[in-house]
Design a protein around this nucleic acid. Structure first.
Lengths: 239, 239
DNA sequence: CGGTCTGTTGAAATTGATCAATACCGGTGG
DNA sequence: CCACCGGTATTGATCAATTTCAACAGACCG
């Protein structure tokens, strides 16, 4: 059985957003790393001078308000790079695992040294930061100006796109490992309305859902509905 | 008459988010730069390998949908750093001036060389990127989980905070150079509801508005209302 | 096989959007 | 200086989207 490791996922992602060859990527083999497992919904402790790559499972970045409201800023999928250096003593956002996840910890200084030594790697990780920024901007677009149904469609397309990039989608089908409550906090909706909206999308024959997976039955219609821009087209390597 | 230039604004901002001395900042004097003026609401053309600092006026980053809806992702104030390198051929977001603005263009390569040569400057600009990320996250929080009144209060506190940082607030008073339509697109509301919400805040004695300026009459109450975290406390230099 | 967490459904309440009319404000030209 | 004009802000009435509350149904787990 072939195991796809975190380096494979990372390479697949980087190579679609930046021109980088497998040879240039081999430098990452030498990185000292430390694999750790995290329980669901427990804030992952910040670690000064550490970056991490998601090796298995999903994580999410969130913030709690005092009255219990929660905002989910984004999801981190396998192959995604997370900076674990704390922003400040009183953190404004936390990261936790959806259900369960494993992260590979890497010392920031080693990582930077590697990027300095290899221009291709440095450029690829710079593109990766631009992509993170784009994903946050997508989140602002969804919450700011899209209707409930458009939000769901847009987020599903984004997740499908990102999962396909790292080989975790099965055709038009992909896993959605979290609860509707978490989805609601990511979409700025109530869990009740998320349920209703998914029902509408099912009724229209645009999606199917079963046991924590989603099947996009009409990706093109969903894309038309929301003006979603695939990652490859909006941040890909310049021709 | 003392003129406060873009370098002063930039330094004020950087020095509150990163430990940097005026001496370390003097390297920026040598940067070749090119000052340009931009008209209101005209998309600023992307420029490969160029970064810019806002020298005068405000800009905003936005995206238009085909049916005319507009999302404003954030505002760029004097002293803010904007990357003008295009993300891709089909741009997903644009930047334009509110009313009118001047940007200072700097060649990216010069900028990077300067950061490489001075660790303090490199660290300061890295902190600046983290701040940009935090501001986008704030925007997600506002749109995702705050009510209309909370959104307005939160954004006003953020703008006041940022303007104070670069010396552009007059005590609790600060300029708001754009129209309610623009504010609405930044808050994910209709312009009508923005007007009503500001009315409520006025009625409660929390703010005053006159001729494109806002006076925060009770900043503490506004902060309590929204759990706004001042920039200095959440991204400041570590002790 | 019970218990708990998650999802679904209905009805009522709330928030904010839309539409439409009016007021205001800053400029411009006579 | 005044009258007018276009754009912007305000207000009221109505409408639509989403939330909340509450009850129930399913799924998963030991």
């Amino acid at each position: 059985m072939k195991v796809i490791g975190w380096r494979d996922r990372l390479f697949r992602k980087l190579s679609t957003i930046s021109p980088i060859t497998p040879e240039e990527f081999t430098d990452t083999e030498k990185l000292k790393h430390d694999r750790r497992r995290y329980e669901a919904d427990v804030a992952i402790e910040a670690a000064l001078g550490i970056v991490a790559v998601v090796a298995r499972g999903w994580c999410y970045r969130y913030r709690l308000l005092e009255d219990g409201r929660r905002t989910v800023f984004n999801f981190w999928l396998p192959g995604d790079l997370i900076n674990l250096t704390p922003m400040a003593p009183g953190l404004v956002s936390h990261t936790a695992a959806v259900r369960e996840a494993e992260l590979v910890h890497i010392v920031d200084a080693d990582f930077i040294a590697m990027c300095d030594a290899s221009p291709a790697l440095g450029a690829a990780f710079a593109a990766n930061e631009r992509l993170d920024n784009l994903l946050l901007a997508n989140q602002v677009l969804r919450l700011g100006r899209l209707s409930a149904m458009e939000r769901v469609a847009h987020l599903f397309l984004e997740l499908w796109d990102r999962l396909s990039l790292v080989g975790l989608a099965d055709g038009e089908q992909f896993p959605l490992p979290f609860t509707y409550g978490t989805l609601a906090d990511a979409l700025g909706l109530s869990n009740v309305h998320v349920s209703r909206t998914l029902g509408q999308l099912r009724d229209r024959g645009l999606i199917e859902t079963k046991r924590r997976t989603v099947l996009l039955k009409a990706p093109q219609q969903l894309a038309d509905l929301t003006e979603y821009d695939p990652i490859g087209t909006c941040i890909g390597p310049n021709d």
